[in-house]
C-alpha cells in the first residue's frame, strides 16, 4: 500500500515569553491510502500542533522549525501560501475539534459547504448545492436543512455537518482533530460509527487525533502515541493493544478500564507531563518511567522499527535490558 502522506522529522515551536516551547519534536509518521491512523496522547502533548502543522495553520506565536510534510511527493512546508490555499480542503480537509465554534454563526450551513466546493472546483452554484444536499443525506441530515443556521442544530448534528463539509471536495486525506470531544457518549459513538462507515465505503484516508485510547483502538488501523511533543510508539492497533513496547503506551493501556475484563486493575501513570519550554535533556518520559536508567538522561531515544511496522522510541528496545 502506498503512503498518501509522509511527515518527516517535523519540529514545531511556540515562541512564548518564557522561551520556545517544542510542541512537536522530530515527529515522523506516514498515512497509507484508505487507512485510519490514530494519533493519540494526553492534552498538550502536541498532537493538535502536528495536525495544524500538516496544513501549515500554526497560529502566532508558533512556527514550523524544520521537517517536511510530503503529500503525493510535494513538500507542504516549503510550498508557497498560494499553493497551500489550493491544497487546503481540496487535498486535505479537517473535521475540527469543536464543530460548534467552527461553523460561522452568520451563514447557513449550506452556504458554508457550498463555499468550500466553489473555492476549489469550477462548478456552478446549482451543482454545488445539489452536492451539498447529497452530502447532508450521506451524513444523515435531512437535505432540506441546508438553509439552517449553525445554532439551529444540536452538537451531534453540527459534527455531522462538519463531516459533510470535510467530504465536500473528495479530499485525499481527512484530519479529524478531537472531533467527537465534547459530545455525550452516545452521540460520540454514533458519530464514530458514521465516520468508520464512510471511511470504508468511500475508501477515505483519515488521521484520527484523540486523547481517548479505547475510542481510537475501536476504529483505527494503526496508532501513533505521542508524549510531550514526541512520537513514542507507532504500530498497528493490534500491536499497540497486545504487544505495546513503550512504558508510556503500557501505562496508557493500564490506565483504561476494560469492559470485557472488569477484574483488570486500573492504574494511573504517576507524575505529570513536563513543561515544554524547559525540557529536560534526554528522554522526555524518564521522570515518570519506572525503567529509567542513566542513559535516558544523556540522550534522546530515536524512533526505531523493532519489527515490521512497529516503531518504538525507547532504549529498552535497543539492547536487551528488560528481564
Amino acid at each position: 500500500m502506498s503512503n498518501i502522506l509522509e511527515v518527516k522529522n517535523l519540529t514545531t515551536h511556540y515562541f512564548t515569553a518564557e522561551g520556545p516551547a517544542e510542541a512537536a519534536g522530530d515527529v515522523s509518521f506516514s498515512v497509507r491510502k484508505g487507512e485510519m491512523l490514530g494519533l493519540i496522547g494526553e492534552s498538550g502533548c502536541g498532537k493538535s500542533t502536528v495536525a495544524s502543522s500538516i496544513l501549515r495553520l500554526i497560529e502566532y506565536p508558533g512556527n514550523i522549525v524544520s521537517g517536511e510534510v510530503v503529500l503525493d511527493g510535494k513538500d507542504l512546508v516549503s510550498a508557497k501560501e498560494k499553493e497551500l490555499e489550493k491544497i487546503r480542503w481540496k487535498d486535505i480537509s479537517v473535521i475540527p475539534q469543536s464543530a460548534m465554534n467552527s461553523l460561522n454563526p452568520v451563514y447557513t450551513i449550506g452556504d458554508q459547504i457550498i463555499e468550500s466546493i466553489l473555492l476549489h472546483e469550477d462548478v456552478t452554484k446549482k451543482v454545488a448545492l445539489e452536492r451539498t444536499k447529497s452530502l447532508l443525506e450521506l451524513v444523515g441530515i435531512d437535505k432540506d436543512r441546508w438553509k439552517s443556521y449553525p445554532h439551529e442544530f444540536s452538537g451531534g448534528m453540527k459534527q455531522r455537518v462538519a463531516i459533510a463539509m470535510a467530504l465536500s471536495c473528495n479530499p485525499k486525506l481527512i484530519i479529524s482533530d478531537e472531533s467527537t470531544t465534547g459530545l455525550d457518549v452516545l452521540t460520540q459513538a454514533q458519530v464514530m460509527a458514521l465516520m468508520k462507515d464512510l471511511q470504508k465505503r468511500l475508501d477515505l484516508s483519515i488521521i484520527m487525533i484523540s486523547h481517548d485510547l479505547p475510542l481510537v483502538t475501536s476504529v483505527c488501523d494503526r496508532i501513533a502515541i505521542m508524549y510531550a511533543g514526541k512520537i513514542v510508539e507507532w504500530a498497528s492497533t493490534d500491536d499497540i493493544v497486545n504487544d505495546s513496547r513503550h512504558p508510556y503506551s503500557q501505562g496508557l493501556l493500564n490506565a483504561t478500564p476494560d469492559l470485557l475484563n472488569p477484574d483488570k486493575e486500573v492504574s494511573s501513570i504517576p507524575g505529570t507531563v513536563p513543561n515544554l519550554v524547559n525540557l529536560p535533556s534526554g528522554c522526555r518520559f524518564k521522570e515518570r518511567c519506572q525503567y529509567a536508567m542513566n542513559r535516558c538522561s544523556e540522550e534522546s531515544p530515536a524512533l526505531l522499527e523493532v519489527k515490521k511496522d512497529h516503531h518504538v522510541a525507547c532504549f529498552l528496545e535497543e539492547g536487551d535490558y528488560r528481564e
Binding site: L57, E85, W89, N101, E115
Partner: peptide, 14 residues
C-alpha cells in the same frame, strides 16, 4: 481568535 476563522483558513479561503 474564533475557530471558524481557523476553519475558513483550513478550507483554503483567501
Amino acid at each position: 481568535g474564533e475557530d471558524y476563522i481557523k476553519m475558513a483558513k483550513a478550507k483554503g479561503v483567501k
